[in-house]
Design a protein around this nucleic acid. Structure first.
Length: 806
DNA sequence: GTGCTGCATGGGA
DNA sequence: GTCCCATGCAGCA
């Protein structure tokens, strides 16, 4: 058994992991402490404020007004006012609590909290504050303890779990169990001390504690300070500023002031929850909500994988300690009162941990969250229940966050923000901000209904960290790829996308720069869906904010934030909410289905580039088939002819076997061609074998590579025909021994733009409509093409290719 | 082929 | 250089 010297230099007792920490006691607040039996030095303690709170625990209740005071940890410091003498004041009645010191002889039956720092630093210390508990709070007069020390002595394993289910939380005799095997225990309110394992006990004196070490041995020792800035009472009357102003949001989420920098939560995790949101969460109950932290959902968080990566510091500070990667099941209640069960666990990662909540997908979907939105974690007091809220990445927050970001960047102060109009300030802040930040905003402008790509969503993240994501991973974003180019909106373009609610701004001159000042903040356009008719004509569909019906609008109409049927000036017959939907349910479903993956910038692209007017699926019975941007591949737009986009949809909505749409016909033809080619290769091999046999007699066979080279050059500039006309293939079979396949030629064939191919081959458009050839690369009407698509888009093309088969 | 799981990788602070 | 964490990805079911 490993022995250790007591870290208390004045003590120096040799303490064994097995027996040295004989004295352990549970906090009513749900934590444990262990101390040297000789000197009383506490080695590990869970400050209750940093974990779940049990009902009636974790609080001090003002004996005068009943207002619950918190111990003063970062998470809930809103409720205390520090006193110069180290005490805390009830912010309501100013009744203060005494600072009680303790000695080694004065060991507490249960842990209390003391405030021992006159400059606002609160330390949770077992030694210095003796309190008993009567179950209603922390009352010095209480003499009874529901927890007998004998019951709670830690053993050599030093691992205990305080099974704090709602029932047991009130029971005098609280059950304990070993942490091993607790995975199956649903520990909604489990408080535990993941102390050092029996195999590897770790104890650190304060100075040596490293925050990267497991939770158990860190942060929650008696010396672990929860440092708070001293907050003037006047600005902090109720814990949270009733005005959900930016400053109040920042103030609510105070980080530790100094010292253990690593222990500080990064600003991006500070909860910016507003009073309004708090009320929404708490509902009608009298419960107090303690905002813990928040996180902007990344693409992975919001993805289907169902794992929400938790900031390490937050996870370790506010979630129960876990010592095994499997972690614990965790119940978290959403704002609707629905409880979700997640698995809170971690992955070992570079000598550290990555904390994740698993199984969040249903919850994320229920909240209709996507990347870029924010999830907030709070704790309901006194129950200690974990709560999960959310905030959409709305324009408002982005404006606000932009301000915050700008301020963080030293761009604007609160003062000059207040001096400027919101709009002007936003513009100014944004304009001065990085291009990426700007682009992030712009990319989401007028984004259509439905899920957009997660990357785009994540790019909407306002703060600096998030904004840098867009360009961080080279794999994710090559600057020259199409997506990146799509991001390159100019500032002027972005301004165009802002739809000020009134059209006549007043002009304000600030530092020789003129700004348009609007009475109301700018809004981004309402989402809409862009479709392509069989005629090639683009149109826009917007949903009435009043009746939710979808109306057809001109494609170039920029929607305001709110739009109703009454504003449908283009179609008087449908300028009333009483007018039925233009689309039948099926069409509507189709439209909405296609909204997924549709993105403004793609529409914009198609507008600016005068899109490739290739037709989507359109048959004789589909006189009007809206074509949204493809979701198959992020770079592809309607009409993209690449091999990816030509594939039939997989999964839901798969085309029927007898479907004769362009895509299906293409695939069928390709398949046929592929089979023919396979046969052809087989024939080639056979012929080769025969030839080789013959060569054995006549002489050495030509190098295969040479053969390939020769054959490639003879088959039209090295291009490969994946979709050669079967008949021609048949006809030319005799001479196709020269056809060879290489990966490069396959790729070339697959990437051959349809338009180029058609142009080079003098083929007509795939669609019969004349508009279809009005793309950026007009397709010559070399011959009166058939009205049914002539699909040969993948035939091999060299720049001078004339005839594939011959 | 698809989805899940656990870990690895690498950019950025 | 260290740490965090978003995401990639191999292995597996």
């Amino acid at each position: 058994m490993e022995s250790r010297i007591c870290m208390n230099e004045l003590c120096g007792a040799l303490i064994a992991a097995a027996g040295g920490f004989r004295k352990g006691w549970a906090l009513r607040s749900g934590g444990f402490a262990k101390l040297c039996d000789k000197c009383g030095t506490v080695y590990e303690q869970l400050a209750f404020c940093e974990l779940f709170h049990l009902e009636d625990t974790g609080w001090r209740e003002c004996t005068s007004c009943g207002k619950r005071l918190h111990c003063g940890c970062i998470a809930s410091s809103a409720f205390v006012e520090l006193l110069e003498n180290g005490g805390v004041n009830c912010v309501r009645c100013s009744n203060s609590f005494k600072h009680k010191s303790s000695t080694s002889e004065d060991k507490p039956d249960e842990c209390g909290i003391s405030v021992e720092n006159s400059v606002g630093e609160i330390r949770s210390s077992v030694k210095m504050f003796k309190q008993s508990c009567d179950g209603t709070g922390y009352d010095d007069d209480a003499s009874t303890s529901h927890m007998k020390q004998e019951e709670i002595q830690t053993t050599s394993t030093s691992i205990s779990i305080y099974n704090a289910t709602s029932e047991s939380a009130h029971e005098p005799n609280v059950k304990y169990r070993e942490i091993t095997g607790v995975k199956d225990v649903q520990t909604e309110l489990t408080i535990g001390l993941a102390s050092s394992s029996s195999q590897n006990p770790v104890f650190f004196p304060t100075e040596e504690r490293e925050l990267s070490k497991p939770y158990s041995s860190l942060q929650h020792g008696p010396w672990a300070p929860h440092i708070l800035p001293r907050v003037p009472k006047s600005i902090f009357p109720q814990g949270f500023d009733a005005n959900s102003s930016m400053s109040s949001q920042i103030r609510v989420a105070r980080p530790p002031v100094e010292g253990r920098v690593k222990n500080q939560l990064l600003p991006r995790y500070w909860p910016r929850i507003t009073e309004q949101e708090l009320q929404q969460i708490s509902g009608d109950s009298n419960a107090t909500i303690v905002p813990l932290f928040e996180k902007v959902l990344s693409a992975s968080d919001a993805g289907r994988i169902g794992r929400l990566v938790l900031p390490k510091a937050c996870a370790e500070a506010y979630f129960p300690p876990i010592s095994q990667p499997e972690g614990l099941p965790l119940r978290i209640q959403d704002v609707k009162g629905k409880e979700w069960l997640f698995q809170f666990r971690f992955w070992p990662n570079n000598n550290s941990r990555m904390y994740v909540l698993e199984g969040v997908t249903p919850c994320i979907q229920s909240m209709q969250l996507k990347a870029g939105d924010t999830v907030t974690f709070s704790r309901m007091e006194p129950e200690g229940k974990l709560l999960m809220g959310s905030r959409k990445a709305s324009v408002c927050t982005s404006i606000q966050d932009s301000r915050i970001s700008a301020m963080h960047n030293g761009i604007n102060t609160i003062e000059n923000i207040s001096n400027m109009s919101d709009y002007s300030n936003l513009l100014q802040s944004l304009k001065r901000n990085t291009d990426s930040h700007l682009n992030l905003l712009s990319r989401n402008v007028n984004s259509p209904i439905g899920d957009t790509k997660s990357r785009a969503d994540s790019s909407f993240q306002p703060d600096k960290k998030r904004s840098r994501n867009i360009g961080s991973k080279s794999k994710r974003l090559l600057i020259e790829n199409q997506d990146a180019l799509d991001l390159k909106y100019t500032w002027e373009e972005l301004q165009d996308m802002l739809n000020p609610p009134i059209m006549h701004p007043s002009i304000v001159t600030i530092e020789d720069h003129e700004f348009e000042e609007y009475e109301e903040p700018p809004v981004f356009g309402k989402g809409s869906i862009f479709t392509l008719r069989s005629s090639g004509e683009q149109e826009q569909w917007a949903q009435c904010d009043s009746c939710s019906k979808w109306r057809r609008l001109p494609v170039d109409f920029l929607l305001p934030a709110k739009w109703t049927c009454q504003e449908n000036i283009w179609d008087q017959s449908r300028s009333s909410c009483l007018t039925p939907d233009e689309l039948n349910p099926r069409e509507l479903e189709q439209l909405l289905g296609m909204a997924k993956g549709n993105e403004y910038h793609k529409w914009r692209n198609s507008m600016s580039h005068k899109p490739d007017q290739e037709q989507g699926p359109s048959g004789p019975n589909q006189t009007e088939q809206p074509v949204a941007t493809t979701t198959k591949h992020p770079r592809h737009r309607p009409g993209c002819s690449c091999i990816v986009c030509s594939q039939p949809p997989s999964g839901k909505g798969k085309h029927k076997p007898n479907c004769t749409c362009t895509v299906c016909m293409t695939v069928k033809r390709r398949f046929k061609t592929l089979m023919l080619r396979k046969q052809q290769r087989q024939s080639e091999r056979e012929a080769e074998i025969i030839a080789e046999k013959g060569q054995l007699k006549l002489g050495p066979a030509p190098n295969k590579e040479t053969e390939v080279k020769q054959s490639t050059s003879s088959s039209g500039k090295g291009q490969l025909d994946l979709n050669v006309d079967p008949h021609r293939v048949q006809d030319n079979h005799a001479s196709t021994t020269t056809h060879a396949i290489s990966m490069m030629s396959l790729l070339q064939a697959a990437n051959q733009p349809l338009e180029m191919y058609m142009k080079q081959n003098g083929l007509t458009s795939l669609i019969s409509e004349p508009q279809a050839s009005s793309g950026s690369q007009p397709l010559p009407q070399a011959s009166p093409g058939p009205t049914t698509p002539t699909v040969q888009e993948d035939e091999p093309q060299g720049p001078n290719h004339k005839d594939n088969g011959s």
